Amino acid sequence: MSGGFFHIPSDLQNTYFGLVGLHLREALIPVAAGLLIALPIAQLCVRLRWLYPPVLGVTTVLYAIPSLAFFVVLIDYTGQTETTVMIPLAVYSLVVFIPAIVDGVRSVPQETLDAATAMGLGPVRRYLQVQLPIAAPAIIAGLRVATVSSISLVSVGMLIGNQGGLGNLLHDGQIYHQNRLIWLSVVGTAVLAVLVDALLVLLRIALTPWMPRGSGSRRTKAAGARPGTDTEARPEPAVTALEDAVR
């Protein structure tokens, strides 16, 4: 067990940073897949309001299934592989993404949709170029929750043949009575979650330049900005989305 703080037992057949890469792959691919699946389902729920409650009910029931039970069911079909870990994580993300997207898209003012239609945008272009950009803050908020949750749940994969990324260190830490390995797992997973969440915050800032950056901006807007200030000049999200769609 010698070889430095980041030395990993040979039975894991990986380095510490190799486990970090495995952990990120098993966490982020399901989130991306869940987002792609949720986008068309959420749009159907927006157009067909009666469909939203049953869809939300189904995703909630699926989310209530324990991850270990999900793994046991899938092992007969996908074996002790990364796929067995990633499928439940993608399914779990739907319970976050679908409400976030539906609420975000429904928040788009009707006059904005009417203006987009008057500009000649069809349903698909209106959804992609107007509704989704305006709904971006709500969608990214859901993305942050789903991503952090996925990074945390990946560790459970250690129970099905060392498919848990950094969670594999928890198992070996108990076998070899090495608290160092347990700390590497717990702290490493927490750091990954914080770093990825920070990147998503930066993404939100880049995609939504009209949103205030802090409480100071909110106070300035509430108090009333002087003519010519940046607060007054900042365009509304609906106007920005329409301008981009026209371009």
Rank of each mutant, 00 (worst) to 15 (best):
residue 184 L to D: 04
residue 216 G to D: 09
residue 104 G to R: 02
residue 200 L to C: 08
residue 9 P to A: 01
residue 57 G to F: 01
residue 57 G to R: 05
residue 117 T to I: 14
residue 175 I to E: 14
residue 121 L to R: 10
residue 172 D to G: 03
residue 60 T to E: 03
residue 202 L to G: 04
residue 150 S to G: 09
residue 164 G to T: 09
residue 24 L to I: 03
residue 145 V to Q: 07
residue 58 V to A: 09
residue 51 L to W: 00
residue 101 I to A: 00
residue 102 V to G: 03
residue 84 T to M: 11
residue 121 L to V: 13
residue 244 D to C: 11
residue 60 T to S: 03
residue 91 V to P: 15
residue 228 G to R: 00
residue 178 Q to P: 03
residue 196 V to M: 08
residue 175 I to S: 12
residue 96 V to L: 12
residue 244 D to F: 14
residue 23 H to D: 13
residue 87 I to F: 12
residue 243 E to M: 15
residue 45 C to P: 00
residue 1 M to S: 10
residue 199 L to H: 06
residue 105 V to Q: 00
residue 39 L to Q: 04
residue 51 L to V: 14
residue 150 S to K: 03
residue 148 V to C: 10
residue 58 V to M: 12
residue 246 V to M: 15
residue 218 R to E: 15
residue 192 L to K: 08
residue 59 T to H: 05
residue 117 T to H: 15
residue 207 L to S: 08
residue 44 L to W: 06
residue 119 M to V: 12
residue 106 R to C: 11
residue 86 M to H: 03
residue 15 T to P: 01
residue 216 G to K: 06
residue 59 T to W: 05
residue 37 I to M: 14
residue 6 F to K: 06
residue 63 Y to A: 06
residue 209 P to I: 01
residue 166 L to K: 15
residue 44 L to H: 03
residue 240 T to F: 03
residue 34 G to M: 05
residue 234 R to S: 12
residue 150 S to L: 08
residue 186 V to M: 11
residue 138 A to N: 09
residue 224 G to H: 08
residue 207 L to H: 05
residue 104 G to Q: 04
residue 68 L to E: 04
residue 78 T to F: 15
residue 62 L to V: 03
residue 11 D to Y: 10
residue 230 D to T: 14
residue 40 P to C: 01
residue 174 Q to P: 02
residue 133 P to Q: 06
residue 232 E to R: 10
residue 28 L to G: 06
residue 6 F to V: 09
residue 78 T to E: 02
residue 177 H to I: 12
residue 183 W to H: 05
residue 34 G to N: 00
residue 68 L to Q: 04
residue 195 L to I: 02
residue 187 V to Y: 05
residue 174 Q to C: 00
residue 120 G to K: 14
residue 240 T to Y: 01
residue 96 V to C: 04
residue 72 V to L: 15
residue 21 G to L: 13
residue 103 D to I: 07
residue 71 F to K: 10
residue 8 I to R: 10
residue 138 A to K: 09
residue 61 V to G: 00
residue 230 D to G: 07
residue 197 D to S: 11
residue 190 A to T: 08
residue 186 V to T: 06
residue 132 L to V: 07
residue 86 M to R: 09
residue 70 F to L: 13
residue 202 L to S: 09
residue 149 S to W: 06
residue 137 P to M: 06
residue 109 P to W: 03
residue 50 W to H: 05
residue 227 P to R: 04
residue 182 I to R: 02
residue 136 A to M: 12
residue 73 V to L: 15
residue 25 R to G: 05
residue 199 L to Y: 08
residue 82 E to R: 12
residue 129 Q to P: 01
residue 232 E to C: 10
residue 166 L to S: 15
residue 156 V to Y: 09
residue 224 G to D: 03
residue 111 E to D: 15
residue 117 T to K: 15
residue 31 V to D: 04
residue 226 R to Q: 09
residue 80 Q to T: 13
residue 61 V to M: 08
residue 43 Q to A: 03
residue 208 T to Q: 06
